[in-house]
Lab assay of single mutants.
Amino acid sequence: MKHYEVEILDAKTREKLCFLDKVEPHATIAEIKNLFTKTHPQWYPARQSLRLDPKGKSLKDEDVLQKLPVGTTATLYFRDLGAQISWVTVFLTEYAGPLFIYLLFYFRVPFIYGHKYDFTSSRHTVVHLACICHSFHYIKRLLETLFVHRFSHGTMPLRNIFKNCTYYWGFAAWMAYYINHPLYTPPTYGAQQVKLALAIFVICQLGNFSIHMALRDLRPAGSKTRKIPYPTKNPFTWLFLLVSCPNYTYEVGSWIGFAIMTQCLPVALFSLVGFTQMTIWAKGKHRSYLKEFRDYPPLRMPIIPFLL
């Protein structure tokens, strides 16, 4: 059985960083990364991007050496992705923050609204209902991160945790300040508006959870398998008939419901920014589905049925 020789060059300087002799033909890129780490321990596998061309796409960890368009002496180019952190850690951090930050404003801890309001309670029912909904949303997200989601990528750049936390924590503080303010004004149409908004919120939260469970069942634990998601017997998953990412559709719907319930401008802005970002993600995933699966359902749109 022939063996391969693998040289790894710096993608920027073309400097030879490592030479691997007698590499098995069936070795994966993940195994080559581990061998590279032995000579350069500062670059652990998650930091490494190996590619066939200095400006090309990163090879997948599961790619097999003998199936790549290389000879028995293969040249790979290395790029440092920077310090990495696990997706689970990032999600837990960015979701735990809003949960606790919101509660600080809800309980009106000292130095927020003035001494005479310390630890007082709002007289408006919608304020307490909003706290329950907000807390439920982020507790749900935390539990899904721990027990439901299966991540195709193990890590992301460390800098992302600061960007994500600034976004989630900042908006949580902004909306919580106004919703729990002693001078907060309840919704214009009173109980009817709150009940309608609560119904929207609850339905969308159930829908979002149902989609996450359906997506989880598509991917076996520990794998990166991708399949076309289809509706199940659960009615909340029937939205798969019309959109590629109904989890985002339901998520946006939840925040629209919360915005109607609280009639709070920061919540509306958070919903708008979230919708914009999720639309970008949904379009990317939709394109990926179309590219990977020739039999992908043609009627589906990325996030909004028939429109977007």
Score class of each variant (00 low, 15 high):
A176H: 01
Q84E: 04
N247E: 15
Y77R: 01
H149I: 05
F201P: 04
F119S: 13
F19P: 02
L59W: 02
I101P: 04
W169A: 00
F91R: 07
I203R: 00
L196P: 10
R300H: 02
K38L: 12
F19Y: 12
R108I: 13
L307Q: 08
S58M: 08
R216S: 09
D118P: 04
N234R: 01
K12N: 09
H26Q: 06
L129I: 04
G222V: 07
H40F: 07
M261G: 06
H115M: 08
K195Q: 03
P229M: 04
E5A: 11
R51S: 05
V273F: 07
A259T: 12
L272Q: 10
R287Q: 14
L269S: 03
K227T: 09
Y178N: 07
S121Y: 04
G170I: 00
I256N: 10
Y4M: 00
A176F: 06
V88Y: 01
Y250H: 03
L92P: 04
F100R: 01
L218Q: 03
P98T: 03
A282I: 13
H40I: 07
N234H: 10
I200A: 08
A11G: 06
H286Q: 06
W255F: 15
R226P: 12
D80A: 13
K33C: 07
L206V: 13
P220Y: 15
T93C: 00
V70I: 11
G190F: 15
P98D: 07
Q84W: 04
Y95N: 09
N164K: 03
L308I: 05
F78S: 12
V202P: 15
L158Y: 14
L20A: 03
S86R: 02
T120V: 01
K163T: 07
P246I: 15
P54N: 07
A221V: 11
Y178V: 06
P220N: 15
A11D: 03
E24L: 08
I200F: 12
M175L: 06
G274C: 08
E5Q: 14
A74V: 12
H153L: 10
I303Q: 02
F201R: 02
I200S: 03
P220L: 11
H149P: 01
F209V: 10
V267L: 06
Y184C: 06
K227N: 13
F111R: 03
Q84Y: 05
P186E: 15
H134I: 00
F293L: 10
P297K: 00
M261K: 00
F91S: 04
T188I: 08
T225D: 00
L65M: 04
K67R: 10
G56D: 06
H128D: 02
K224T: 05
F209D: 01
W87D: 03
G207D: 01
G114D: 10
Y230E: 07
R123C: 11
P231L: 08
E251Q: 04
F119E: 03
Y189S: 08
D61V: 10
V252R: 14
C245G: 11
K291M: 08
H181T: 02
S121L: 05
Y177E: 03
R123L: 04
Y296E: 02
H153T: 06
T28S: 08
L239C: 03
Q193D: 12
Y113H: 08
R79F: 01
A83G: 09
D295Y: 06
L103A: 08
D61I: 08
F78I: 05
L142E: 15
C165F: 11
R79S: 03
H26L: 12
T262L: 12
T28V: 10
I8Q: 01
T145F: 04
K227M: 09
L239Y: 10
